[in-house]
Nucleic acid binder design. Structure first.
Lengths: 262, 262
DNA sequence: AGGTATTTGTCCGTATGTATA
DNA sequence: CTATACATACGGACAAATACC
């Protein structure tokens, strides 16, 4: 027994429960004892039991469901391929579908998305990238995506004014089934290079209301700025917000590791 | 979107505090009123005030410091370039330094790292990638890294047995200042292609004790499997655990967006 | 360096609300 | 409809870390 007084009681109970989960006593998806039961079992107050369960929830080990109980979580990661593009899909015979749907279906899961097109004011960052004034009107195309019925990601793209003028379909309130990347490319504006950044943060209140994810789940963010050529014109600014417990993002990186071979 | 009419009291207080933060009343780094003050101000119990502050902390808005107070957080993101390699550094005249130190110093911040080399048992996944039995002995090289004195990331690399036999320095308990990528490349084993995956999750208890990050901060994970050529031999399996509120990972992706041009 | 006030962390007991089975 | 289970809320006590004199 660890009688280290520096470790709070609720943390010791959390550790004990975690050990019981690891031992197989509570397999993935199973229900933990109720809080009153744990309270009696460990002879502590309700506060302490709740803190213990909250610690496990924050660590992504369990999920509490109001009125139902506390359940052990199992993570199923979906791989999002950030390197392949639609031309690769075509070689595999996939034509009229965006690359996200392809990824999800190939994982044997069911994709669904709700689409919307809206006019937005350019943020400072967007304005700088596009060379317009902050607050300028931009067209945003946004997808709210679910996997097996679970809210999984939100993808938002904004396009420069001149591109929307050239390709009015970008302003239409209808989804472009083949994906905007290949649509824009086919019309004469191929994206030759993308700058991606990946980070993570807690959900905003707004995102929370869409995802309704358990505690311990945060956002995995992928930003992508697409250019017609290196240091060229920006064709699209995209940001995707993923549930971080459902996704991993894959990149194939060309190594140039042999410094002496240049 | 679902419109929950009933919002808990603590959430309304959290929203009110967030609005006051956004309004500039509490700028970044400033201290919020103490909990007894908030309790009096909003005329609620200590539980409710604490729940409100916890909600803000979980959302990454504020950070509570034991005995000191509650402070508004400012995020400073460090960019980790996952695409450039040491040969690029050399062209810029940087030679005897790994790419991480380069990135951190270029951001005007102070990198520091503690290195260790240990013998570990291969996990199932590592064993599969390396073509050995699970549990086989592998050499792991690990860096515990701080930025401006703040624990920022842990990077762990494992190498196949045959490569350590060929390059015994990989088993040495000393850091390889130039970075292992270029070291291994110079000795005749260039890494021509990397497979990266990026994801996020809560810290493990062990990671927590190193990072000591406030609530609302999680791990940003980058895994990298490096090959000598596409579908070739695995030269290294690397996993880096970053504080997600301190890092974004940058990738330069070659676009092949023009499907008709093939 | 030490002591004291301040501030958050932990823990107790209890009551009531609300979602789920 | 009822019982169950977690969520919210009240009020208070003491511990532990920090700040300040």
């Amino acid at each position: 027994m660890n009688a280290d007084r520096r470790v709070p009681n609720y943390q010791r109970i959390a550790d004990a429960l975690m050990a019981r989960i690891d031992s197989g006593e509570f397999p993935s998806g199973s229900r933990l004892p109720t809080e009153p039961q744990l309270k009696a079992e460990y002879d502590v107050s309700s506060t302490t039991v709740r803190n213990a369960v909250k610690a496990l929830a924050a660590a992504g080990i369990v999920e509490t469901r109001h009125g139902a109980g506390t359940f052990v979580i199992e993570r199923k990661l979906l791989t999002i391929n950030a390197t392949t593009t639609e031309d690769l899909d075509r070689r595999r015979g996939i034509v009229a579908q965006d690359s996200w749907s392809t990824d999800v279906k190939e994982a044997g899961r069911e994709p669904d998305q709700r689409f919307e097109c809206l006019n937005v004011a350019a943020s400072d960052e967007q304005a700088k990238l596009l060379g317009v004034e902050p607050g300028a009107w931009l067209v945003m195309r946004r997808c709210w995506r679910t996997v097996d019925g679970i809210p999984a990601s939100i993808e938002a793209s904004v396009f420069p004014r001149w591109l929307v003028d050239a390709l009015p379909e970008l302003g239409s309130p209808h989804d472009i089934a083949q994906g905007t990347t290949s649509f824009v490319a086919e019309r004469g504006y191929p994206m030759e290079v993308h700058l991606d950044y990946v980070s993570g943060r807690p959900f905003t209140r707004e995102e929370e209301s869409f995802f309704r994810a358990p505690a311990g789940v945060q956002a995995l963010i992928r930003g992508r700025v697409s250019y017609d050529k290196p240091d060229g014109r920006v064709l699209r600014i995209m940001e995707t917000v993923y549930r971080n417990d459902m996704h991993k993002i894959l990149y194939v990186v060309a190594g140039r590791g042999n410094a002496t071979s240049r």
